[in-house]
Amino acid sequence: MFEARLTKGELIKKVIEALKDLVTEANFDISATGIQLQAMDSSHVSLCALQMKAEGFDHFRCDRSMPLGINLSSMSKVLKCCNKDDIVTLKAEDDGDSINFMFESKDQDKISDFELKLMDIDSEHFGIPDTDYKATVTMSASEFTRICNDLSILGETVAISVGKDGVRFSVSGEMGTGNMTVRDNTSSDTKEADRVEIDMEEPVNLNFALRYLKSFAKAAPLTDRVSLCLSRDVPLLVKYEIPEFGSLSYYLAPKIDD
């Protein structure tokens, strides 16, 4: 028996909104420690890794570890019926072929339940190595969204370079070119939300497809901050930590010289 109850049900809704553009169906691996998901986009360019800790839920019970294969677009449709302040309960039997969603309004005056059929999904699992990244930038999640959306007007590929002057996002396309540089401002009186922290061991310059970054940026409603971790010739890690709940990480393969 699996049962998880979350007062801040909206978090589940936001997590699915942040995944469904990239992943159509995925296994939610449930165990006594929580819920994990790892899935690639259909082009196998990026990898999403979700972790939701059991302690992050108001109630969490999982008697047997198992994968719950779910179509994310169906799940997103069901979650449209969940209101902002609703309490969400997820339930599945050990040998069942469905997952149950229950949405309760805060005042307990409306209760909805939905059942979704589970799917058998053959998913490839990757071992993600612990990487000692050469540069880490932590900034406002909404500011990162803004940069990705604004720069995509000009081109498809962004060059991200971290140097002593800050982190520069550059795009060039048929219309022209654009650069946005964000500087470390931890020494000034910047308010917490707008802080930019740049931790650089050595300069890094890598190219990435903007459309994936724009999809990753859909996770911004989950939290205030995002971290970008870069090293030469390895995937970019874009990590959204969700306080007391878990994290949503995205890995994006760089563009490489032929």
Partner: peptide, 14 residues
């Protein structure tokens, strides 16, 4: 000229 690499190139299947 640049091309898009795949994520499996970097992570071992496990």
């Amino acid at each position: 000229k640049q091309s898009q690499s795949k994520i499996s190139r970097f992570f071992a299947a496990g």
